[in-house]
Each structure stands twice: as C-alpha cells, then as structure tokens.
C-alpha cells in the first residue's frame, strides 16, 4: 500500500482520511543522522533544524509518497508550505488549515476543512471516501490507541527504556496500521514480562518540543531518568483519547481533535496545562523535564508561563535546550544528573 506523507508539528492530521482513501499514513519526521544542507539552500539555518530535516527528507523521498498534506502547526512549518511547493516534487500537496482555537466556530471550520480535504483527495485519486470506510479507519485507529494506552500504563511499573517507548511511538505514525497492531500486540506481551521499574531510575514527566529521534531519549536514559508520562505528539497526545465510533465520522474526528492533549500552537496556552496537571495527578513522578529544541519557537514562547505554573504547583522542574544532533550531549546529561541529585 502506498504511503501518503503528512507534515504535522502536533497531532493535527486525521490519518483516518488517507486510510479510508486506501493509503498508509506516514508522518514526516526527518532524519537526525542526515545533514540538513539540501534544505539549508532554501531555509535559513536559524530556523528550527527539525523542520529543515523534514524538508531534506521531503526533497529526497517525495517520489515514494502518493502525496503530501500539511496541517496548520507552528509558524515555522506553516511558512514552509510555499517552499515545499517550489522544491519538493509531488503531484499532490495540500494544506489543511486546522484551527488554533477550540470553540464551536473553530470546530465548524475544522469540519469544513476536513470535508474539503476529503473532496480534493477523492477528485485527485479517483476514490470514494465513504462514511463506512472512514468508520472502519476510525476503528483501526482506536485499536492502535487502545494498545498504546495499555503499553503506556506499563511505563511507570516496568523496566522500559526511554528509547523502547520512543520506538513504538514512531511506528504508530509511520507503519501500516495492520502491521502496527500486530507489532504492538507483540510488544505488549513482551513488556508485561519485563522486570519491575528499576530502583536506580527516577520517574519523570517529559514535555516540550517533540522528541523525534531515539538519541534524544538517550540523554534521559544516561542520567537515569525515565519518562513515564508525556504530552508529546510522538507520545500521549497521539493516543490519550479515542475517536467516537458513533454517528458522523467527520464530526467524530473534529470532536476527537478538540479533546486530545493540546500542543503549544493552540490558543489559549493554558489548554496545555490541563493535560500536564492530569498526568501529574495520575502518576507519581518525581520531577518534570521540560526540554526544548534549539530554535523551537512555540515551545520557547510557552516555556516561561508553563514552567512557572508547574513550579507554582510545587513540582521540581528542569529546563534543558537540546541541539538537533544524534550525539549524546554530556553537558545536558550532567545537568539532568544534577536535577536527579537535588530530587
């Protein structure tokens, strides 16, 4: 089955629409091991390196993809749409203007945008995206989300390294869903039999910029911190909620996206705190690791308020800024070790 790629800095994209059209959704995540210089010809290198990595991947691999959709995300990606139009070869490049607000008007607008995307897909690929097909895709998505919820429950109780969790969250957005379900079922059995949560590790909540490569998680592992909760798009944002299987499937998708843990691109920014506070209430973490990728604007803007509020709530919190590199930065490891010491 052909891949249909999407570029999404949160979890805005309704994968179910391309599944109903007969494609495998594939989230563009760049590759930290590949230099960004192809993209650097078109984007200044003071712009988020992850976004440049995605452009590099788009330029190199677009011929493997049936098409590409963008979702309204951070300004860095929004404003790259035109660059992609000029420099990424594809027959189908589409922009879905998912709303930043979350009220009745914004949701009506979201529904309109999804229906518009569906009709463009139908026309371009000569397919019928029926309600039945959408409902089937929703059921498949829900199976993935439920399995991920089961797997995530094991994070605070079993010995699950940070990169093992990261690996399955990546699979969720890049693998064919049937193969994914089989892989997750196998992982669940394996994780259930793992040893207990290691006594020399500290459980933490991980928030901030999306961690898109396993080496980023290795920084935590090196400092003996285990992320047992998070609000990342490659993480709980993707599976915290399921989609209603009743009624109009497009409306169900809109409703789903209004309920998920919010990314920093949404208004108002307090919306993000709701889910973080819920995690902190549900799970006994010892601290919060708030990491931002260098030049990540939305998180840079959210950080002072969010960190301030969480500290006011009485949580131990450390802020680290990471480079986009597969090298484990010992300076960051050292800071996390200090954090561990003071806890």
């Amino acid at each position: 089955m052909r891949l249909f790629a999407y570029y999404d800095t949160g979890h805005e994209f309704s994968e179910e629409i391309v599944m109903a059209a007969g494609f495998t959704p594939y989230k563009i995540l760049g590759d930290v091991n590949v230099p960004n210089d192809p993209a650097d010809r078109y984007v200044h290198n003071y712009i988020c390196p992850f976004s440049r990595s995605c452009l590099t991947e788009g330029m190199a691999r677009s011929d493997e993809w049936a098409g590409i959709a963008f979702c309204h995300g951070c300004d860095t990606t929004n404003n790259q749409y035109d660059i992609w139009k000029h420099h990424v070869k594809t027959d189908f490049l589409y922009w879905i203007n998912t709303p930043a607000k979350n009220d009745a008007t914004a949701r009506a607008y979201h529904e309109h945008e999804l229906r518009r995307f569906i009709s463009h897909m139908e026309k371009h690929y000569r397919v019928d995206i029926t309600d039945d097909k959408l409902s089937e895709a929703i059921r498949t998505s829900n199976s993935v989300k439920r399995l991920m919820q089961e797997l995530a429950k094991l994070r605070p109780v079993k010995d699950i390294p940070n990169d093992a969790y990261h690996a399955i969250t990546r699979k969720c957005v890049q693998m064919h869903k049937d193969d994914l379900i089989a892989a997750l079922e196998k992982t669940l059995e394996e994780w259930k039999n793992r040893p207990a949560f290691p006594s020399d590790c500290l459980p933490v909540l991980l928030t901030g910029s999306d961690m898109t490569y396993p080496e980023g998680m290795d920084i935590l592992e090196a400092a003996k911190l285990r992320a047992v909760r998070d609000d990342l798009s490659l993480g709980e944002r993707y599976f915290a909620e399921t989609i209603s299987e009743e009624g109009d499937p497009v409306k169900a998708l809109v409703d789903y996206h209004a309920r998920i843990p919010m990314p920093p691109t949404k208004i108002p920014f307090e919306a993000r705190l709701v889910y973080l506070r819920k995690c902190l209430k549900e799970t006994n973490v010892k601290g919060i690791v708030y990491q931002i990728l260098k030049f990540c604007e939305p998180h840079g803007l959210d950080l002072p308020y969010m960190a301030g509020e969480l500290k006011k709530d009485g949580h131990r919190l450390i802020v680290i800024e990471r480079e986009y590199t597969p090298t484990i930065d010992q300076q960051l490891v050292s800071r996390l070790e200090s954090f561990r010491e003071i806890i």
């Binding site: 260098k294 500290k311 131990r316 802020v319 800024e321 990471r322 480079e323 300076q331 200090s338 003071i342």
Partner: peptide
Amino acid sequence: GSILDFVMNDK
C-alpha cells in the same frame, strides 16, 4: 542548606 532549585545558561 538543601538545594531548592537551579538554573543554568542555555546551550
């Protein structure tokens, strides 16, 4: 005498 909090420069 316990450490309450610390901040360090960015990268």
